[in-house]
């Protein structure tokens, strides 16, 4: 496996791999999101208790899952980056953090918009909502640290340490609804056994979840490529790439 992974420690190889994968991710996410969102918002049956208001579930839950998933991946990448001193790890965490922060903000915002009509309040300091808010601050901290130092390697190290330490919050978010009594209901998607959600409501959710996941992957590829270019601007291969691009621009 190491032999297979080794070439991708080279910025140029990873840059090209990300470029090759990106259109596939974009296409898949467009198809899945189109089908999933139309199905979810227009055709899935309304909930017996909440009526049509429950449809915000199809945005809220994927955003929340991705906010936690992205943080975990960011922490794992930061961990490998610190232990094996991979330069590309810094570029990846810098690429991931703003996307995760946006998903966290979306989860908090849609949650508030859902909570007002259903619970009767925009916000309550229960364990789930508070720990998710802390996740947003952790993301903002990682972004801030990436931009706090002139030296990109030093900045990446500082941000990586914060990302690793903050990962403690992720299981707290997930289990907050089981460990403490909260206004937020328990987990629907990961609950096995009893039917937490009717199948005709669950399928469009899966499409939306994977649609958003592939959209994230496409944006990650895009951001990763720009980060790699910015960090290797002085390398010959980046100069050759820039020269090539400007020539083809002139030819037009």
């Amino acid at each position: 496996m190491w032999k297979w992974l080794h070439p991708y420690a080279n910025p140029e190889t990873s840059y090209q791999l990300a470029g090759r994968l990106q259109p596939w991710f974009t296409g898949l996410s467009a198809v899945l999101l189109l089908i999933g969102l139309v199905w979810a918002l227009a055709f899935a049956p309304a909930d017996y208790q909440q009526g049509d208001s429950f449809r915000i579930f199809y945005i809220h839950v994927p955003a929340a899952i991705l906010s936690m998933g992205l943080y975990t991946s960011m922490a794992i990448i930061a961990f490998t980056g610190l232990v094996w001193q991979l330069k590309l790890a810094d570029a990846s965490t810098a690429a991931l953090a703003p996307i995760g922060a946006v998903f966290t903000a979306i989860a908090l915002f849609t949650g508030a918009a859902w909570g007002k009509p259903m619970w009767g309040t925009w916000w309550i300091w229960d364990a789930r909502l508070t720990s998710e808010l802390i996740l947003l601050f952790l993301y903002l901290g990682v972004i801030a640290l990436h931009n706090a130092f002139e030296d990109k390697a030093l900045a990446g190290k500082a941000a990586g340490i914060l990302a690793i330490v903050g990962v403690v919050n992720v299981p707290i978010i997930h289990y907050s609804v089981e460990w403490w009594n909260t206004l937020h209901q328990g987990a629907t998607v990961t609950k096995f056994g009893r039917p937490a959600m009717a199948p005709e409501m669950y399928w469009p959710f899966l499409l939306c979840l994977f649609g958003f996941a592939f959209m994230t992957a496409a944006i990650v590829c895009m951001r990763f490529r720009t980060e790699v270019l910015a960090r290797n601007a002085m390398r010959p291969w980046v100069r050759a790439l820039a020269l090539q691009a400007s020539e083809s621009q002139e030819a037009k």
């Binding site: 909930d47 909440q50 429950f54 619970w119 328990g186 987990a187 039917p195 959600m197």
Partner: peptide, 10 residues
């Protein structure tokens, strides 16, 4: 405030 559960169904 109302607390609803994690089950959704038509």
């Amino acid at each position: 405030l109302a607390k609803h559960d994690e089950n959704y169904m038509p």
